[in-house]
Design a protein around this nucleic acid. Sequence first.
DNA 1: GGCCAGGACACCA
DNA 2: TGGTGTCATGGC
Length: 221
Amino acid sequence: MRLLAIYRTLRRRFGAADWWPGESVFEVCVGAILTQNTAWTNVERALGSLRARGLLSYAALRPLPASRIGLLIRSSGTYNVKARRLAAFLRFLGREYRGSVTAMARERPERLRERLLSVHGIGRETADSIALYAAGAPVFVVDAYTRRIFSRLGLISGREEYDEIQRFFMWELPRDAALYNDYHAQIVRLAKDVCRPRPRCAECPLENLCEKRGVPPSRLR
DNA sequence: GGCCAGGACACCA
DNA sequence: TGGTGTCATGGC
């Protein structure tokens, strides 16, 4: 089963995902940084903390020192690190786009990715998440779920570089931001609802392919 | 009480 | 270029 067929199977099972979970484009950017190596439930708490104080906008957040931001996002973990990264992103947004995520979203996709990667604390996955989910750019997001699930299915080894896996997906799939958006959302849903916290392989829409391939149970989380 | 989560970076050899 | 340590909370 190849990539498009897998997507169609997931889509039939889960329906349209309508992602990313965020109430504004700015919130998507903040969430993309806060979710680094962190469960989304913890990110939601931090976003809620910012929202409750009316701080989920560039104008409100930009004047705050990183130390203050850190206290507000504690629940997302590694909060001192993430506060510095958020501050770096805010400086970037102010310097390059006068604080406007709308202006940022108008940037050409390749150029936007390149510029985001120059920001401290924004790596490939975070840059691509912002480019796709905040700016609607046709770039495929490769995350830990993607790596884990597709290596189990035998389509990648899982040890490839980020860019190599991304090229694989973008080579095989039509260049379509809506497709990349929903595909990644389907992967996350499969990982969360079926593969974790305890594998429910009998309910897997992908015909339990990884188990049939002899993937050991220890890898099925 | 230990393991893990939708990474990125610094440092070292 | 690749390996390892660090950051840190909250759920299970």
